[in-house]
Each structure stands twice: as C-alpha cells, then as structure tokens.
C-alpha cells in the first residue's frame, strides 16, 4: 500500500512538472523515501523507545518526587538539583568521579602509547608480545574484578604477601579510602589497555616510514622523532582514544559494584553507582533521575569539547 502511495505521489509530481513544460527526467531517487523508511525505521523505533524517550522521561522525573514504583507524585521543580548540588556527599561523589576519570584516562593513554611504541620495533618474537598486549580486551568486567580482588586481597593477595616479604606493612587496599580509589583506577586502566594498545598500534603503523627516514637523515634523535613526528601524526587517534576512555570511565559501574560497592566511606561512590543506589536500593527515583541528568550533561559536555578540540587542533 505504501508503495502505491509513493508511486501515485511520484506520478503527481511528474505530471505537475510536465504542465510547466519542463520534463522531470528519470528520477533515480524516486523510491528512496520508501527505502529509507524500511531501512531506518527499525533503528529509529528502537532508539526512540530506549534512548530518546527515556532521556526526556528522566529529565521529567528529575523535577518530581516519586513513589516507590518510580511514578512522579509531587512536582518540585529544580529542588532535586539544589538538594544534590548542596549535598557534600554528592559533591564528594562528583570529585571522586573526576579524579577517577582523569587518572584513568591519563594512565591509559600513556601506558597504551608505551605499549604500542614498544611493539612497533621489529625484533624477534614481537608478534607474541603484541598478542599479549592486546589480551585484556578479552577480559570482561567481572573477571577483571576477580583477578584484581585476589591481588588486592589483604590476607592472601599477592601484594600483601609482597609487602610482608619486604618487611613493609601491608596496605588494606580495598578498605582505606585513598587506596581503594587507587585499586579501582589500576584495575580499570589494566582493563582498558588491550583496546587502547590495538588502536595506538594501528595508528603507529600508519605513520609513513619516509617521515622517520627524513628525520634520520637530519640526525634527529629517537625522542625528537617521537615528539615531533609520531605524536603529531597520531594526534587524531590520541583524541579519539581520550574521548572513548573519558566517557567510558564516567560510566564505570561493574568494577565498583564488584570490588568496593562504593565504599569505603563512599570514597568510590562514583556517579553511576550512586544513580543505581538511589533508584534501586533507596527507591528515590526522582533524585536518581536528577543524578542521571547531571551525568548525561557532563558526558555531553565532554563529548562536545572533545569534538571541538578534535576539529581545531588535530591537524598535522
């Protein structure tokens, strides 16, 4: 039926044109609208239901108090926002999240670059090392949590045993606020490395070798080559990786749930974990929605800034 409609519409269009004494010609795009509907329709529907509607609904809920079924009861305007932004606990969460995100991003990029750079040199057995370096990509969050929980375990963990062997007082990694954050950051960076390595490695491979040859003829040192050829050439990739890492870190949930559950003393109670706690443990859907909106805004801002930077600075 839809096809018929499209056809009749087309017919109308061409007869109109003929009247004005200009032949329309064969229009290769005549059927495109129908195809667009068929091809894009399903995706649009899914995105509408599970991305656009919930975003609007979240914004809506953030302006209300809610009952324990998640339905709005009392309109409170921006009061939820004020409550949050004046709550020292929430501000602490924000700060903790920022520290976490920045530490994870910087470490991931630096170590990732070192891995990639080390893997570019063609020495015997290098493909073995390359495979190892990309291995954490196959590690899911729960497995990573178990591996690292064991390493950080105060009684049986590797680190504690190492510290004891060296006559140092073992650190209570997961129960002291500062160390818990450190442990989470290390675990996250470790998980990120496989992906980051692969991307950086690919980027390094695509830098034309003649650039290095030209630099060698000029007598440029290895480090000069790295900072003046490699880095500028792969700067688009570095920005791409930093966007992805930043955004993914803002959304961290699994490792925290499994390793610290937001503790100790809320030291690792990052934004997403808080959203989960307030909604599904405390039943405070309104407040949780407000937190969600704030998270979405932060992520949108970061994405936007990164895109802008990408536009401007990433030119060779």
């Amino acid at each position: 039926m839809m096809e018929n409609q499209a056809k009749s519409q087309n017919f109308k269009l061409s007869s109109e044109k003929e009247k004005s004494n200009i032949s329309l010609g064969y229009n290769p795009y005549a059927k495109d609208k129908l195809y667009a509907l068929l091809f894009l329709g399903p995706s649009l529907l899914i995105l509408a239901i599970f991305v656009f509607y919930p975003m609007l609904r979240t914004i809506y809920l953030s302006l209300f108090l809610t009952n324990n079924l998640g339905n709005p009861t009392v309109f409170v305007g921006i009061k939820n926002y004020l409550t949050l932004l004046t709550s020292s606990s929430y501000i602490n969460s924000l700060i903790a999240t920022l520290i976490y995100v920045i530490a994870v991003s910087i470490l991931t990029i630096i170590i990732g670059l070192i891995l990639a750079q080390a893997a570019t040199k063609k020495v015997a057995g290098i493909s073995f090392f390359r495979t190892i370096f990309s291995a954490t990509m196959g590690v899911s969050v729960s497995v990573a949590a178990i591996f690292w929980l064991f390493i950080f375990n105060p009684s049986v963990g590797l680190l504690s045993q190492l510290f004891t062997a060296l006559n140092l007082t073992p650190i209570n990694w997961l129960t002291e606020p500062g160390w818990a954050m450190t442990a989470i950051v290390i675990s996250t960076v470790w998980m990120n490395l496989g992906f980051t390595f692969l991307i950086f490695f690919g980027a390094l491979q695509s830098v034309p070798y003649t650039l290095y040859e030209a630099a060698q003829i000029e007598g440029a040192s290895k480090s000069y080559q790295f900072f003046h050829i490699t880095l500028p050439m792969i700067s688009p990739t570095i920005f791409f990786v930093s966007i992805i890492t930043l955004i993914e870190s803002f959304k961290s949930f699994g490792l925290i749930d499994l390793m610290t559950a937001g503790g100790p003393n809320n030291a690792t109670n990052l934004l997403v974990y808080r959203i989960y706690q307030d909604a599904f443990l405390n039943g405070n859907y309104g407040l949780s929605s407000t937190e969600s909106v704030i998270l979405a805004v932060i992520i949108a801002i970061f994405t936007f800034i990164q895109f802008k930077v990408l536009e401007k600075r990433v030119t060779y």
């Binding site: 200009i22 032949s23 329309l24 010609g25 064969y26 229009n27 290769p28």
Partner: peptide, 12 residues
C-alpha cells in the same frame, strides 16, 4: 545524464 544516472533537467 545520457546513462540515466543523473536526471535531465530539461531537454530530450
């Protein structure tokens, strides 16, 4: 236009 890949605005 002769091939029919691009529509002809006017003419035959």
């Amino acid at each position: 236009m002769i091939a029919g890949l691009i529509p002809i605005t006017s003419g035959e």
